[in-house]
Design a protein around this nucleic acid. Structure first.
Lengths: 232, 232
DNA sequence: CGGGCAGTTGACCCCGCTCAAGCGCGGTGG
DNA sequence: CCACCGCGCTTGAGCGGGGTCAACTGCCCG
């Protein structure tokens, strides 16, 4: 734990809406006890069902949160990127993790021990309110997700997911999505079979809606995709 | 607003885990400003997309929370029963309601204005923590729901829903579920077509798993239903 | 008695899942 | 350096779960 890392944490927190109202003292307190870890692509931060001893805050990278069905198929329910907090649900409810968290690219993550996190919530009502808002936002997204999976067909859902990915992770200078998922992961996000994702992506490409370069996807005709997604 | 109602509110709060740690003063404050409303079966408390001016706490009755798909089909994402708080998501995020709330039976509900609710959160860290836990619980359920709808077939999901209803609402002296849903509502909960629910209920009945009397359902062979639901 | 709504049943058929085979490519070891 | 292996990706064929449509019944209520 060197000074450099401590500064990074303070930066992360200072730039993070979640931590905006916490005092310098509180940040210093957090800085003294937090840990900084790096994870490689594919590394698991924690498994569904494991007991948690603290919460995590992403400094850089992308984390996928998924549940595993009875047949072993992954259902991705959420992503975390820089500035995002995760793992708080299990800590607050004192339950085991209800999802597995896995890095889908090289990621750097802060770990905040349970007690420090809970103290911060108890002593700082602004922070508590931010955590409430955070979980409420995730709840709203989850409810929307339920509606989509229950009522939209796979084509519509895939279109929606592509728009979501562009919205949430942005595009690089060449126009490609700033997130790289395997076809299987896309399927696990859409809630369908890998082959269906492949066929539909191929359709979208044929219709000039997207460009595909290996795992990199570029949205060409966003309007048409929006219409397909049926989100108004 | 008579004294009777005030006492009811205090009882409701006193018996409610959510409000357990709030002081007598705070309860009195709430009692002075709260409103008490009754809703008949089918009455809408608020519509998806409407702006909220406070939160609701169920005294008695059952509220269904659903989103409406593009084709008008309802997807039920949650129920509220006595002691449950709802509407807090929109108030906290200052967003319009993301679901419609409708009474499925005669219900009595307290209304707590936005400001009182927010003040309580800011001034009482125990209450804030309870709200956090509440939304975290709903989030966990929503994630499980996503997995189920994405990966289980209709038969498995219907079995799971029946068990959930028994668990959550209990049974009356005759063994029937303490919640009465139309086939269409059941379909909107399972995420399928009404006809599919009807056929599967009929199958379950034929196999001696359940008894049906109009809208009343009795679970006979809970173990077999649990096996069908594939929840271990 | 008639209208309307919830429930039921049958017929049809299509979306999308599954299985199988083949391809491309990067890594590894001989 | 090449051969091989394995994994991710792709494509085709087949079929079955379940959605849709239509018709009918029963029941409530005006």
């Amino acid at each position: 734990m060197n000074l450099n890392k401590k500064i990074e944490l303070e930066n992360c927190f200072a730039n993070n809406a979640l931590f905006r109202r916490i005092s310098k003292d509180e940040i210093r307190e957090l800085s003294n006890i937090k840990q900084y870890h790096s994870y490689n692509k594919g590394d698991i931060i924690y498994n569904e069902g494991s007991r948690m001893s603290g919460v995590y805050c992403v400094d850089s990278g992308i984390i996928k949160h998924y549940k595993t069905g009875n047949d072993g198929k992954e259902q991705i329910v959420h992503f975390s990127k820089n500035g995002n907090l995760f793992g708080y649900r299990s800590v607050l409810l004192n339950q085991t993790a209800c999802t597995t968290a896995k890095a889908i690219e090289k990621s750097f993550i802060f770990f905040i021990p349970e007690n420090s996190f809970l103290d911060l919530i108890k002593n700082n009502s602004d922070f508590a309110l931010n955590i409430i808002k955070l979980s409420c936002e995730e709840l709203g997204q989850a409810n929307q997700n339920i509606l989509d999976i229950a009522q939209k067909n796979v084509r519509e859902r895939l279109a929606e997911i592509l728009l979501f990915l562009e919205d949430n992770f942005g595009i690089n200078e060449e126009g490609y999505l700033n997130i790289s998922l395997t076809r299987e992961e896309l399927a696990g996000l859409v809630g369908t079979a890998t082959e269906s994702v492949i066929r539909l992506l191929s359709d979208f490409k044929k219709d000039g809606l997207i460009e595909i370069n290996k795992r990199k996807i570029k949205l060409i005709n966003t309007n048409a995709i929006k219409i397909i997604s049926k989100n108004f």
